[in-house]
Design a binder for these strands. Structure first.
Length: 484
RNA sequence: GGUCCCAUCGUCUAGUGGUUAGGACGCUGGCCUCUCACGCCGGAAACCGGGGUUCAACUCCCCGUGGGACUACCA
């Protein structure tokens, strides 16, 4: 009988959710949803000095925004269900780690280490200087009971180290195939810190086992750690889960993706006006491929077609331009009413008071500029022409208006508007026709002056639509301004 | 230094011994058009190097080279 698949995303709340971690979360989520398994969140907050609750809250917001719903995890508010394998925060599982440490102590598989950080650092430096591999040489491994007592009396609090036996460690990785590690170079590593907090490799093994995790999907940066963890699985007699180590994301220069490459956290992309669907789609695409070379997929489709075998083994460079391309497509495909809702915070921020703007009119405006948008935050620069009759004129527009012929076009157009009786629909074509006949201008020389006068720019949506939105009164005002 | 991972256009990738090496972003030429955007049609652009194995290697093996990870009382 197959066990129910259970995967976990286990970040440490020490900063904003990085896209690399978001991608790991996504892989886990897709794997769980694809196989009908459970997606679990575990908070690895054993580093007290770096962890903060605010980051944890932030993490929940980001996951929710991305649409990665949890089956189990620490409860922050009622919208996130707890599960039966809690607590899901490592800082609340300290007793569990202590008990497990005790087992290993009794079996003599670990020993207390009284070295201070200074002593360890000195040892490291000495080894490096003598061109040997820096690692713990096992100074405290064979301390007698008396020696230990003596150190305790000095007030030293021990950390606990795992006794590493020289061995070859092998396991099967779902993405990379057969893995083999020469364990001879690994020094006795700390599993419990002197402050009573478990070290990463220790806590993961215990938690993954106790939480019945069947597949550990994580970044390649954990590949080497897996060897240490395998030793621990063996020591405890636990059956190890199946591992899958995916490749990492890099910046353009193949260096670790960091702030100097631009946005790197989910929050930053959200503020920039990237749609969650676009980010998800991009992250799923990065270092992966779907059937028939498809690139634009809904969440449902991604879940359906997802397979770890199709994720690439090599690292991938984060290409913000392609993300933007995807984002633009999602914006275009968004129903205008929905888009307006998503745009609201960005409009507010750009100084447009959306609550007093006529909804129907706003819809028309957005409909018109939809295809120009790459990110939501750019909205202001595309719609300001509809709001302000005293716009700023660009250099190009000014130039267009300078010519004598342009002036004539504007005057003819303006004159017609003043006296016209037609409704808004028929007004524009009629006025254009009039200007055309009176001046003999056509094509560019006919439309550009009007565009420049009406919008202050030489680029923008189709003029007839722009006209229909700003209306006759505003048009007259602008024409007057442009000719003065 | 040690252990380990990786290697197809600039970038993300398809490819599983025989292909004109395909697609996408970006770049670029054209069409559409008052302009920009969208859309449509076209173009340039890649198998890291050297040895094997084989009738035949991008594909399999070995060795280089290059990039990356880990090597913490961080995770």
């Amino acid at each position: 009988m197959n066990k129910k698949i259970r995967v976990r995303f286990a970040p440490s709340p020490t900063g904003e959710l990085h896209v690399g971690n978001a991608r790991t979360a996504l892989f886990n989520w897709m794997f769980a949803r694809h196989s009908g398994g459970a997606f679990i969140l575990r908070i690895e907050d054993t580093d007290e000095s770096r962890s903060a609750l605010s980051y944890q809250i932030n993490l929940y917001e980001d996951l929710k925004w991305l649409g990665l719903d949890l089956d189990e995890g620490p409860q922050i508010d009622s919208s996130y269900a707890n599960g039966y394998y809690g607590p899901y925060k490592q800082s609340e599982r300290l007793d569990i780690y202590k008990n497990h440490l005790q087992k290993l102590v009794e079996e003599d598989l670990v020993y207390p280490c009284y070295c201070t950080e200074k002593e360890l650092e000195d040892e490291r430096q000495a080894l490096i200087l003598s061109k040997r591999m820096p690692r713990y040489m096992g100074k405290c491994r064979n301390l007698t009971g008396d020696e230990r007592k003596q150190r305790e009396n000095e007030g030293r609090r021990p950390s606990f180290r795992f006794k590493v036996q020289p061995q070859v460690i092998e396991f099967e990785d779902l993405i990379r195939g057969a893995m083999k590690f020469e364990g001879g170079a690994i020094g006795d590593f700390i599993i419990m810190r002197s402050n009573g907090m478990p070290a990463y490799n220790f806590a993961v093994v215990i938690d993954d086992h106790l939480m019945n995790i069947t597949h550990v999907i994580r970044g390649e940066d954990h590949l080497s750690n897996t060897a240490l963890q395998m030793m621990l699985y063996k020591a405890f007699g636990f059956e190890p889960p199946t591992f899958a180590h995916h490749s990492l994301i890099f910046g353009k220069d193949r260096a670790k993706l960091s702030k100097r490459h631009g946005s790197v956290s989910v929050g930053e992309f959200r503020k920039q006006g990237i749609l969650p669907e676009a980010l998800i789609n991009y992250l799923a695409l990065l270092g992966s491929s779907f059937t028939e070379g498809r690139e634009i997929l809904s969440c449902e489709e991604m879940v359906k077609y997802f397979s770890l075998e199709r994720t690439s083994k090599s690292g991938a460079i984060f290409d913000e331009e392609k993300l933007h391309w995807l984002n633009a497509i999602y914006i275009r495909n968004c129903k205008t009413e929905d888009l307006v809702e998503r745009l609201r915070p960005f409009l507010q921020q750009a100084g447009f008071k959306t609550d007093v703007i006529d909804a129907k009119w706003l819809n028309q405006v957005i409909e018109l500029v939809k295809t120009e948008l790459t990110t939501l935050s750019e909205i202001g620069s595309y719609i300001n022409i509809f709001f302000n009759d005293k716009y700023e004129m660009t250099e190009e527009a000014r130039k267009i208006l300078d010519s004598e012929k342009a002036r004539k076009v504007i005057i003819a157009f303006n004159e017609y508007l003043k006296t016209a009786k037609e409704n808004l629909q028929e007004l524009y074509p009629a006025a254009i026709k009039c200007a055309k006949e009176k001046t003999g201008a056509k094509g560019k020389e006919l439309f550009m002056p009007i565009r420049a006068a009406l919008t202050g720019k030489t680029t923008g949506p189709e003029l007839d639509k722009v006209f229909a939105i700003i209306g006759k009164e505003a048009a007259l005002k602008r024409l007057k301004l442009a000719t003065s």
